[in-house]
């Protein structure tokens, strides 16, 4: 479904990402793990059209989308849950969700709103609350629900467990499991390696802007050198 090959992205003189290649097949949950500063967020930003890669290629369902704008990419079927959630804090929960479904017809949007209310009971209770008043866990659920509103073929999440208390981290990974059971295609960037590898079909390990390992979740979990890769070594 998604093919990334030889992607390099720079911030000014800094190569935040060097020659990254990965693929995500339909129905897969793929994890992208690595320490802070490894280039994970840069990679997602480059795929989603927020950053312009200096070289390399991104194809989505066989179409070259390397230079596409974020709004065009969303229309072609990929949605990103950005790092730090970036929900619209001045708007209500419902309005946040509506914006998520802005590209769809009114009827489809109402349909999806109902689905989200069922999928995320916490949000249903705060439907008309300004999103700025949500707790960290609620806000994360809203950010994921907002992305699902566009009925994406590929859902990308950037550090969904960041800054959450352990119990909420559980909640986020339960949600990923649930979405996987629904047959959705998901690409997740995470720092919480153990949990991510348990949840993913396959995973890539990124360090200092380069891929250093790739495999199924269980394979990587058994790699004894993983701890070193993470904390440096």
């Amino acid at each position: 479904m998604l093919e990334v090959s030889g992607l390099t992205t720079k911030y000014g003189a800094i190569s935040a990402l060097r020659d990254a290649s990965l693929s995500v097949g339909a129905g897969e949950v793929v994890g992208l793990i690595g320490p802070n500063g490894a280039g994970k967020t840069t990679l997602l930003g480059s795929i989603a059209g927020l950053l312009e890669p200096s070289s390399g290629k991104v194809t989505f369902e066989g179409v070259d989308v390397t230079k596409a704008s974020p709004e065009a990419l969303l229309r072609s079927g990929m949605a990103l849950v950005p790092e730090h959630r970036r929900i619209f804090v001045d708007m209500t929960v419902e309005e946040n969700l509506k914006i998520g479904g802005i590209t769809r017809s009114g009827a489809e949007r109402s349909e999806s709103l109902k689905e989200m209310a069922e999928l995320f009971p916490v949000l249903r209770d705060k439907w008309d609350t300004a999103a700025g008043f949500l707790s960290g866990g609620e806000a994360q659920q809203l950010a994921i629900a907002r992305a699902l509103m566009s009925k994406p073929k590929l859902l990308m999440m950037d550090e969904p467990s960041l800054g959450l208390a352990p119990i909420l981290v559980d909640l986020v990974f339960d949600l990923i499991d649930q979405l996987r059971a629904d047959g959705r295609t998901i690409l997740v960037v995470e720092q919480n390696a153990t949990r991510m590898l348990q949840a993913a079909d396959r995973a890539y390990v990124l360090r200092s802007g380069e891929f250093v390992a790739e495999g199924t979740g269980t394979e990587l979990l058994e790699r004894s050198d993983l701890f070193d890769t993470f904390v440096g070594g």
Partner: peptide
Amino acid sequence: LALRGAAEDFDTARLMGVKS
């Protein structure tokens, strides 16, 4: 909604499909 979203966070609004 799109206008308010863009006023609050332009990039994120684009990620939601709001055309700049």
